[in-house]
């Protein structure tokens, strides 16, 4: 463990716009700078994968794989696009490869375990738990692209123009995808809710 140095607090607090410069340094051989990028983005990436896969341990593996690939392909980083756009491009590829390898086993929404037992929960909390489970299930029913766009815009602090760059389309179609994704999600959520209430 002595060789391991986590990135310092000060470095982490630096403005996000320095991501690009850090990645350029990594590209040019100062690979230890990747630690700062890892500390800045690991939690966000982990939650991105968690919402996509519903599987905690797979999500950790996928985050690790993203940073392995960033190192492997560091020479291909050309600073024209934001680091985050490039990173999510890697993340999407990692996720697609994961889907290819994955055998359908336990349905995704069932992998979110630890549903607390009803006796220990007040009614409002139980309602909230059901809500979360329903939303996750509804999200899982969205087609992958819509789900990705929705997650990126809602949770990953990605601007529409960055998402457009990531998907190689124009900003208008990203906006209408978000619009449609939410509308579809709402419909699925209502259907699921209807299925639950007697």
């Amino acid at each position: 463990m002595s060789a391991k140095k986590t990135a310092s607090e000060k470095e982490l607090r630096v403005d996000q716009s320095t991501d690009n410069r850090l990645m350029e340094e990594v590209r040019d051989g100062r690979v230890e700078k990747l630690a700062i990028l890892f500390e800045r983005h690991q939690v966000m990436l982990y939650n991105f994968f968690l919402r996509l896969t519903g599987n905690r341990s797979a999500s950790e593996d996928l985050v690790q794989e993203v940073f392995v690939r960033i190192l492997k392909y560091r020479k291909t980083y050309h600073g024209q696009s934001k680091f985050a756009v490039w990173m999510y491009q890697v993340a999407r590829n990692v996720h697609i490869d994961h889907l290819r390898k994955q055998k359908p086993e336990v349905p995704l929404d069932e992998q979110f375990t630890e549903v607390p037992s009803p006796e220990t929960l007040p009614v409002e909390k139980m309602d909230a738990e059901i809500d979360v489970a329903l939303l996750r299930r509804a999200l899982d029913q969205l087609p992958l692209k819509k789900k990705e766009i929705l997650l990126l815009s809602r949770f990953q602090e990605m601007k529409y123009k960055d998402i457009a760059e990531l998907f190689g389309c124009n900003i208008g179609s990203v906006k209408s995808s978000v619009h449609r994704a939410i509308k579809d999600l709402g419909k699925i959520y209502c259907q699921l809710q209807g299925g639950l209430t007697p």
Partner: peptide, 21 residues
């Protein structure tokens, strides 16, 4: 959608990353 709580990855992730680096 805000009710979907963000979670923290386990400590093993960080350890694996630094070992890899």
């Amino acid at each position: 959608l805000g009710v979907l709580p963000p979670e923290q990855p386990g400590p093993a992730l960080r350890q694996r990353f630094y070992t890899m680096l």
